[in-house]
Write a protein that binds this DNA or RNA. Structure first.
Lengths: 248, 248
DNA sequence: GTCCCGTGTTGATCTGGGTCAAGGTCGCGC
DNA sequence: GCGCGACCTTGACCCAGATCAACACGGGAC
């Protein structure tokens, strides 16, 4: 998740990202057909839990539209988000029996799923599927480690800027199609969810967003609609160098 | 790294963990021989840098003996350790050209390496290598996400307890071979390195270790030799439930 | 309409861990 | 032996962010 590398969903198979991302590029028609046979869609409403940590997980799949979060919770209720699933991101643990995190839809969500057992059979017979999954998993590992730096060493303001910068890169439409122009997007998360991602409290998130607004780093319409007039400025606030670490 | 799953190095191929971990179990003699051909060893002294972030990385491999760290550094010098490489852990990014992190030996270190290009050729021809690497990468992803919870939501004391608990699980010898008995090991990291792993300062690390000692959770001989009289107590201090999250 | 309730903002105060500073211990080179 | 540098500990003080609390906004049910 959260990588340029896993961004593109090509027009011709936008309805089924996994087909494109894991397979298309290197699969022949026969393999695609077999994938097609075990494919199905699942829909969730905003707030619905896709799967609980520890539950048997008998599918893998990827997000077609909407947003989901991966979270871990301690017994006393402290929670940490460990991943954000945006369209085209993959969920699933080939070779594992059960989910390791809670997966929750934060908006209405459509996923393209494959039943796990036949998917694994197919994977074992089709080397480029395993290779593609390895690439995707390495991307996620990079993103997770990048996030460890955010959690361990950045200030609250830098954390917020880092999160906005990641969401902007994945979600934004460029205003008036001007490259380098202002980026505009809607925040897909509540202040509380942002706090859980960043290891902060929701009050601190709110205060820091207000501060970034006051300082002209971002503009807000309502509580969710964000404009970033100067992406380089935002990335500077995030403490990234201008090419943005793993996202370069 | 840091997973039970990647623990075992069998006696018969202790000289070459990758052979065992990535391949042995499912490879035939022919495949093993081809791996053997592209295998070589590298030695590093304590403090030496194995590779700098961004450098071309033309090998993959695994740690035979000694300890190395993966770290990320911001331009202003703040650093975050994102991984700890213990014997049998794998390093390398099949499909990637350059290192994403600084890799530094913190003790004398021996690695068993494979040249990347021929390794990838072999991987493409040998499905179970790619599958094994996928499993290992998923383990690392789990460990990285577990660590996000530590960094984002745990207190300094819990962080220290979490780190001790992980090192104990990987490194400890059981005192007098009594199962459930006290665990004994040497800390392979300076206080500063621990701080970098935990997102703390070295002073806080020192204070919290003193506090755990004062409270009888650990015993220290000198500055590095640790005894854990009651592992369950330590894990309780770490905020893990008794079976220890992803390490269960 | 109005009564909720989920969401977000802002203020006042507290505190865990950072920062700065002073020593202590040990091992190594000479 | 002595001096030096790497590593560690402890104390005093400070501040970023947590906590507690009050209130504002807006949309849906009725």
């Amino acid at each position: 998740m959260l990588n340029e590398r896993s961004l593109a969903v090509s027009q011709e198979c936008a309805d089924c990202p996994i087909k494109h991302r894991a397979v298309c590029a290197r699969c022949d028609g026969d393999e695609l057909e077999r994938l097609e046979e075990i494919k199905y869609y699942r829909k969730f409403e905003a707030g619905q839990t896709v799967i609980w940590s520890g539950d048997r997980m008998d599918f893998v799949g990827s997000v077609v539209s909407g947003i989901a979060t991966l979270t871990q919770t301690m017994e006393d209720g402290r929670t940490q988000m460990v991943g954000l699933l945006l369209p085209s991101d993959f969920v699933g643990r080939p070779g594992r029996g059960s989910a390791a995190y809670d997966v929750v839809a934060t908006t209405d969500l459509v996923m393209c799923c494959f039943r796990k057992a036949p998917f694994e059979v197919l994977m074992n017979k089709t080397p480029h599927i395993a290779q593609r999954l390895l690439e995707m998993t390495l991307d996620e590992l990079d993103a997770a480690r990048e996030w460890m730096l955010v959690l361990g060493r950045k200030t609250a303001r830098e954390k917020i800027a880092s999160l906005l910068s990641i969401i902007a890169r994945r979600n934004a439409t460029v205003e008036a199609s001007v490259p380098e122009g202002p980026l505009v997007f809607d925040l897909p998360l509540t202040r509380e969810a942002m706090a859980d991602y960043l290891g902060l409290t929701l009050e601190t998130v709110s205060r820091q967003i207000s501060a970034l607004k006051r300082d002209g780093v971002i503009t807000l319409e309502g509580k969710r609609h964000v404009t970033i007039p100067d992406m380089a400025r935002l990335m500077d606030e995030a403490g990234d160098d201008a090419d943005g670490g793993v996202f370069a």
